[in-house]
Design a protein around this nucleic acid. Structure first.
Length: 273
DNA sequence: AGCCAGGCCCATT
DNA sequence: AATGGGCATGGC
């Protein structure tokens, strides 16, 4: 299947830190797992060649119907965001599986992206269904709830094993991610934070990357630093960064957050290395 | 080698 | 309500 897309860059999307199961094959050519599908995306310009999922799933997963050009134009009234957007013009917010995002971001706490990817992969391999070749789907709540805390630890999640274990039990006992996703953002967040291992930042990630709550604004160490440096001009606590950012960036604060996150990390790569 | 990682839990105040 | 120590493990 070939599709014409705009405001889309598969490399930026796959490397944006919102997903952990996409891997590079070649230049502008990635492979990822979407639910029980092995998906391949190869892009040249505005033409994207897709294998493994149908058009409807592609449009849904990559949020194709949303006009990111309009959102970017809105944010380009802001000089700082304008330069951030230049780094990641093709970023889009993925519509991922709720349970997978929840567990993945519980793992993300005080962790680094390469190791998060390894852990998510190990969990899929050990507890998920085999889909084809050596590819495994992320486990369902029922499948993952069969894992002991020790088995989870063997997947490299460290002290987060307990969090995952308890959260799985809660989901299995009726905590309904689909139901709470229908709640307004503040109530939804409050519910998510009842789960073990889910604080403010993880809850925001779950809402943004799997529940289409685009006004969620996850504040991690990177975002805190960049907001303090470029906007606030002083050191403040995380709640203040969140309050300030949501007020400033409005309905699509989460998308602004992704541009900024991508920007700081690219800048770090360029200068740091 | 040693610091740090897309934070959260929990005890203390 | 606010603060701070502790946390498994490995990437760089």
């Amino acid at each position: 299947m070939k599709i014409n897309v705009s405001d889309f860059n598969i490399e930026q999307i796959a490397e944006s830190g919102q997903c952990f199961r996409w891997n590079k094959i070649d230049d502008m050519h990635y492979m990822g797992i979407i639910e029980h599908n092995v998906c391949e995306v190869k892009q040249s310009g505005n033409i994207v060649e897709v294998h493994g999922i149908d058009e409807e799933k592609f449009i849904n997963y990559f949020d194709i119907k949303r006009d990111y050009n309009e959102i970017k134009r809105f944010y380009m009234k802001d000089d700082i965001l304008t330069s951030a957007i230049k780094y990641g013009e093709g970023i889009r917010i993925l519509n991922q599986d709720k349970f997978e995002v929840l567990i993945s971001f519980i793992i993300s706490a005080n962790n680094n992206i390469p190791r998060i990817k390894k852990s998510v992969e190990a969990i899929s391999r050990r507890f998920g269904q085999k889909i084809e070749g050596e590819f495994y789907a992320f486990p369902t709540p029922l499948e993952l709830s069969k894992a002991t805390e020790e088995e989870l630890k063997a997947c490299g999640v460290g002290f987060r094993a307990r969090y995952i274990y308890k959260t799985c039990k809660d989901i299995l006992n009726g905590f309904d991610l689909d139901e709470i996703s229908k709640l307004p953002i503040s109530e939804c967040k409050k519910e998510l934070m009842k789960l073990t291992g889910v604080g403010s930042k993880v809850a925001d990630c779950v809402m943004l990357f799997s529940m289409q709550k685009f006004d969620a604004f996850p504040v991690d160490v990177w975002i805190k630093r960049i907001m303090e440096e470029l906007y606030i001009k002083s050191e403040v606590n995380i709640k203040e960064v969140e309050r300030f950012s949501k007020e400033r960036f409005k309905d699509y604060a989460g998308i602004a957050q992704q541009y900024l996150f991508f920007y700081v990390r690219e800048r770090e790569k360029a200068t740091g290395q």
